[in-house]
């Protein structure tokens, strides 16, 4: 059965219409407005110089352009041209990050569906657990991770640093099979892209990088301005409150078994 759809020009009506048309598709309404006009509007707000200085912080001047790149509403070339025209050499970091997206797409072109499996052997023991409900439901009891999961499901957008922390927690602390986690994460993201997503999960897991990505509380607290740690019910037994050496020792010293 096929059906020609006449989409309503009112966004609210259109969103309701799509819910009716696709009752099996779950999830909340989009907080991002799609389209070329919205992409250009966001691009014009880019401060590539401030981006370079602040991008690692959760409240830094990141662009939030990824959903637009993902759907072709804006091209990487256009964004780099804009940044260089307005910010010259100060746009270096921004263009460098755009290049990551291009790189991952080139890896996808080379490997195809194989990017959905570990490309290289992991450099540390990694687990194969199923994705647990407490992670999906934002109920781990860790204020930071629960906030990142909620943000993912509610908005479809998460800051890069939070994506890295979250993936590292899921893969290395909880020993979840990165493929299961990546697939769930991909579906929830509004910028969900097999290349950037699955290959970033592999980069964290160390199946497409030379070492696993780990973080500690000091790092998370610094770049999140302590907002999660202050309120965290687990702040006195924080699993990340360790040096990198002891984290490494704790997570990888014995071969993991389920």
């Amino acid at each position: 059965m096929i059906e020609r759809i006449s989409l309503s020009s009112s966004r609210a009506e259109r969103n309701a219409q799509l819910r009716q048309l696709f009752p099996e598709v779950a999830g909340v309404d989009s907080v991002f407005e799609g389209g070329r006009a919205a992409a250009l509007q966001r691009l014009r707000k880019l401060d590539a110089a401030a981006y370079g200085r602040t991008r690692n912080s959760l409240d830094g001047r990141v662009s939030r352009l990824s959903p637009y790149f993902r759907h072709g509403m804006l091209t990487l070339h256009e964004a780099a041209d804009f940044a260089l025209t307005h910010f010259k050499g100060a746009s270096y970091k921004f263009v460098f990050e755009l290049a990551w997206r291009d790189f991952w797409r080139r890896v996808q072109a080379a490997y195809g569906a194989r990017i959905e499996q570990s490309i290289e052997p992991p450099k540390v023991p990694i687990g194969q657990r199923e994705l647990p409900e407490d992670i999906i439901n934002a109920a781990t009891g860790l204020a930071c991770m629960d906030a990142f999961a909620r943000e993912l499901v509610e908005t479809g957008y998460v800051h890069n640093h939070a994506r890295m922390w979250f993936a590292s927690y899921v893969v290395h602390h909880r020993k979840v099979d990165w493929r299961a986690a990546a697939q769930w994460y991909y579906g929830e993201l509004i910028d969900g892209d097999r290349a950037s997503n699955h290959l970033s999960w592999q980069w964290i897991a160390s199946t497409f990088s030379s070492k696993p990505y780990l973080f500690n509380r000091e790092n998370l607290e610094r770049y999140s301005d302590g907002v999660y740690c202050e309120q965290c019910p687990a702040k006195r037994r924080c699993p990340f409150d360790q040096s990198y050496e002891s984290l490494h020792e704790k997570l990888f010293s014995t071969e993991f078994s389920q």
Binding site: S30, F32, G34
Partner: peptide, 23 residues
């Protein structure tokens, strides 16, 4: 995909003249 992605895509389709959208 979740609903937010479907809606985001539909926003973009609205800006493309003379496009026929099917389910």
């Amino acid at each position: 995909w979740t609903m937010k992605r479907v809606q985001f895509i539909a926003d973009g389709l609205m800006e493309i003249p003379n496009i026929h959208v099917y389910k």
